[in-house]
Design a protein around this nucleic acid. Structure first.
Lengths: 206, 206
DNA sequence: GCAGAATCGTGACGATTTGTCACAAACCAT
DNA sequence: ATGGTTTGTGACAAATCGTCACGATTCTGC
């Protein structure tokens, strides 16, 4: 059992987690390394090797119990607790994120929604009241938030990040098109569907 | 110059493309491998090596021209043309995607939006009329669409995928929580922000 | 014009990671 | 019991990546 996961292993375990979560929802009680391989395009032998490094989770001739394997991977990734995150931006994307059930099943709660636009402050988005950016430091500390999600246009993204960092955030998920400058102890994860698509297209074209 | 990019190289080139696009928008005319490294967490030497495998794009002592490098990478990834994609689902997430400017700057056009809900058919979302799923085969063939984006709830996702595939789609971007079954000549890219977040959290916790 | 700083391009090499084949052990269904 | 299935794991080759090093080139300041 490795002391600390390498980037590659952690990335693959996350993929397994994703597939297993979906599989459980579809009612699959058991799943084989071969099936996980088909959904993830990760070598089946590698999957078994990844998992067996932490214990013998499967049954020979049968496969893995979906539920059991989920718990094991959560334990390995140490993500069994509850995590509160803050969302900045109550527009279309922000609303979609706030009302998505996808976070809840992984123990993640959107615990605060912030906006700059005074018009939107006080409104409710997916059961959460929209707060002012000015209240961010207090709310984030109180709710123990270290993860911030940026769902604002590019021109206000840096302001949103600065506010989040001032309020104590250490992990930023950036759904804007802005390039964000942050201190070295803060990590930024930028998502760009268009680039992901170009990447996929490259491998499709023969 | 390699005949065909490996998965790793293509993935890194995509990251560079993403950062360069953002950098250009921020008005940066030049960028160094060191700067790209800071934004991507990819080794600066590796970045230079990746790029120099295709030509000498940089100027010693100066760095790379943002615009020029963008063009070169687009050429390497063969993504300079126009691509039409279809979107299924005109809910909050679908609307956010349809009206996002992020695709246009990479030559990607949301050329059709489909819905099952008859209420929404005929409405406009981000300048596009919402079409019925029944018209999918005709519209997709006519507009040469091979990429479909799923932005519907999990319970109708498989139906949406089946329709897209019947209409000729080969690449599916899945923003639902469903596990999708597709023929082997179709690739599925599932996005799960919650799992990405757990992955990021793992590396943050010491 | 020159010194110095910055940055690219590239060689070399070891460390790490991944892919692949193989096969025994365990499990299930009949 | 038998046969088919799937895990767990060893062994090893192949690919990838990180790192150090260093010359070549370009810009800046003086």
């Amino acid at each position: 059992m490795p002391e600390r996961l390498t980037v590659g292993v952690a990335a693959r375990l996350s993929r397994y987690l994703q597939v297993l979560t979906q599989a459980r929802k579809m009612g699959k009680e058991r799943i084989s390394s071969q099936e996980i391989s088909e959904y993830t395009n990760i070598n089946a032998t590698q999957i078994r090797r990844d998992l067996s490094a932490f214990g013998k989770f499967g049954k020979r001739g049968v496969g893995y119990r979906t539920e059991g394997l989920l718990d094991e991977i959560r334990q390995i990734l140490r993500t069994q607790g509850q995590h509160n995150i803050a969302l900045v931006g109550a527009g279309r994307l922000g609303s979609a994120i706030a009302s998505s059930p996808i976070f809840a099943e992984h123990g993640i709660t959107v615990a605060a929604i912030f906006e700059i636009d005074p018009e939107k402050i006080g409104q409710r988005v997916g059961n959460m009241p929209v707060s002012s950016i000015d209240d961010m430091p207090e709310i984030c500390r109180e709710r123990n938030i270290i993860v911030g999600v940026i769902a604002v246009p590019a021109d206000t993204a840096q302001d949103a990040v600065d506010a989040l960092i001032a309020a104590g955030a250490k992990i930023i998920f950036n759904y804007s098109e802005a390039l964000l400058d942050v201190p070295s102890d803060v990590s930024v994860h930028t998502s760009n569907p268009a680039v992901d698509l170009l990447y996929a297209l490259y491998f499709h074209l023969t």
